[in-house]
Amino acid sequence: MNFYAIRAIYFHEMDRMRRTIGQSILSPVISTSLYFIVFGSVIGGMIPELDGVSYGSFIVPGLLMLTLLTQSISNSAFGIFFPKFTGSIYEVLAAPVSSFEIIVGFVGASATKSLIVGIIILLTASFFVELKIQYPLLMLFLLVLTCLTFSLFGFLIGLLSNNFEQLQVVPLIIITPLVFLGGSLYTIEMLPEFWQKVSYFNPVVYLINGMRWSFYGASDINIFISVVSLVGFLIACIVGVAIVISKGYGVKT
């Protein structure tokens, strides 16, 4: 195992976050704070309690997942796409590094960045709403698992993208709508019966509800189904990345 290479890639990517601190940290924190101000404090004050918690507190897990998903995907997609774009990927390909080590370096750094942003968002949320976490260890487990899974997914997108437009398609056109329609700002029970059934086909519903259960011990979906769904998606991402990188698709000719 080339530990020095993993370390080099990891800190190289973390260094990118330090250089772009405004984009990496401040931007998601500001946009999430705006959600808390508008939906949590202003509008939330006029909405009755949901699942026994105030609306402001209710949306915290959903907004946390929204940020984790989008950040994890964009961090790792950009992390691998940017060297492809500049051509500097040559040195990673020419180095004595296995595909596994490359993935650990890039995905590890991306997941760490998302984790940092997630923790900052939780701290930010505590300024706006009352925050209780009933199962902190489960919350932490889901936090790490989500960051890793979607960083892997983003890595796959970065590998397969040939231009900046392709890089943005999945996060903007697929992930963001799925998160907004996945119960991040409401419970599925609030929807008409038909749309409730449709929502069960949205994979993000399981993730948001899993996170919500770790906060308040109540959600629309059984926690075990949520965890199994997340682990299932993690395995699918691992298989996808392994196939793509072993074929050299997107980076080797």
């Binding site: 080339n2 530990f3 020095y4 290479a5 370390r7 080099a8 890639i9 190289h12 040195e91 990673v92 180095a95 004595p96 590094v97």
Partner: peptide
């Protein structure tokens, strides 16, 4: 960074 990629301390 490049030195690290090649597995050198």
């Amino acid at each position: 960074y490049t030195r690290g990629l090649y597995g050198k301390a």
